[in-house]
Amino acid sequence: MEFLSALVVGGLFGSGIYLLLGRTPVRLIIGLVLLSNAINLLIFVAAGLTRGKPPLIPDGAVVPPEAVADPLPQALILTAIVISFGVLAYAMVLFRQAFETRTTGDLDEMRATDT
C-alpha cells in the first residue's frame, strides 16, 4: 500500500510541476492544485499508513489499548487543505483579473514588470 501511494505521490508531483512550467494560466492553476494534493498525500504516507485502527479511546480508559493510526498527520493535512483552498481561490481571481484586459493568455508575454 505504501509503495502504491508513493507512486501516486510521485505521479502527482511530476504532473503538477510539468503543468507549472506551461504557458497558460489555467495550466498554472491546475499545476498548483495537483502540487498541493501531492503534498497532502505525501504527509499522509510519510507518517505511516495504519489500516482499520481509528484513534478512538474506549470509555474510562486514558490511553488506547493497542497501537492506533496517528491522528496528527490528518490534522495537518486538514489545515493544509483549508489553507491551499483559500490561497488557490485567491490566485484564481487574481489570474482572471490580470488576464481580463489581455487578448492572449500567454504567460511568457507578461514581461512589463520584469527587469
Binding site: L20, S36, I39, L42, A91, M110
Partner: peptide, 22 residues
C-alpha cells in the same frame, strides 16, 4: 502573479519537507 506563484511554490517545498520530517 509572479509573487503569488513563486511564493506558493516555496510553501509547497516547505510543506513537503515538513511531511517527511514528521
Amino acid at each position: 502573479i509572479k509573487y503569488v506563484t513563486l511564493n506558493l511554490t516555496a510553501s509547497a517545498f516547505f510543506l513537503t519537507g515538513l511531511g517527511i520530517l514528521y
